[in-house]
Nucleic acid binder design. Structure first.
Lengths: 146, 146
DNA sequence: ATCCTTAATGAGAATCATTTGCAACCAGCT
DNA sequence: AGCTGGTTGCAAATGATTCTCATTAAGGAT
């Protein structure tokens, strides 16, 4: 059984929630999508399996709480998630022009953030770093059209 | 004339937009609120001045583009902004329990981010760092109630 | 100062992601 | 197998944000 399955099972048990068919399907779908996804895309990937969009929305907070997925960003009016188990934390670089998202690792920044957390006795659950601007391709295009 | 006013004026001129009564009022209101605000709060602070909520929504992107405000975070389904002219960039620490927001400066992290940007030829326009978890007060309460 | 052109506004309707109410269902325990 | 309370699918509701459109008002030209 994959790691994320046992983790979800344990999480639900601890909270007194039930491991249902829909929840299992949603979790698996989230780990089969190897790109950012929103509620609708996740639901689409379950087409034909009779899982309602409402249940997808109801399950997303559980996956977040369980530390299985994280909110990658909000764009075009929707929340976009990504699964994180086994994935290193990373920074999101979002091009404001072409909307593409790039990722880099976050390792160098973490120790400094942890020092700041300790100083104010803050218990970190989640770090979100996103940087918006122009990717190299769009910079070139912007200069050409001047 | 305060700095933010001339900056907004110049920005609008450059883009061929008009400096209207509503826009002036909205800008001033944004700089009078010394806390995070969402569209509705900003609109409330203009009560009686006959500025419509739609215009507040229409002006927010202009203030963002002009670099006068920034999106501080999204919480409880709303976008929260803060004015930034003259304010140092900072990290947001958000307590998931009491929803309070704390701020620390960002100075130590910036140089490292800039190195990463240079490596991928990314032009940074905006850096957003928010960290969620538990503030020290809520940690204590959480432990007590176990 | 008045005209003119066109962007901008206020008010309300429309949109659309996300939530919720509810009756039927089923996971997990006895 | 029977209970029981959490869970679901569906449809309707919600609520932040956007859009429509008739009217108004910047700001350049006269």
């Amino acid at each position: 059984m994959p790691d994320h399955n046992t983790r979800f099972k344990d999480f639900l048990e601890l909270r007194g929630f039930k491991l249902t068919r829909s929840r299992k399907l949603i979790l698996d779908a989230a780990f089969e999508l190897h790109e950012h996804f929103d509620a609708e895309k996740l639901h689409d990937s379950l087409k034909g399996l009779n899982v309602s969009l409402a249940t997808v929305y109801r399950t997303l907070p559980l996956l977040l709480d369980a530390g299985l997925i994280q909110l990658a960003m909000r764009s075009e009016g929707r929340d976009r998630f990504e699964h994180i188990l086994g994935h290193p934390r990373h920074v999101h670089w979002i091009c404001e022009n072409c909307k593409q998202v790039f990722e880099t690792n976050l390792d160098e920044l973490v120790p400094r953030i942890e020092v700041a957390a300790k100083a104010q006795k803050f218990e970190i659950n989640h770090i979100n770093i996103s940087i918006s601007g122009l990717c190299w391709k769009c910079r070139i295009n912007a200069n050409e059209s001047q």
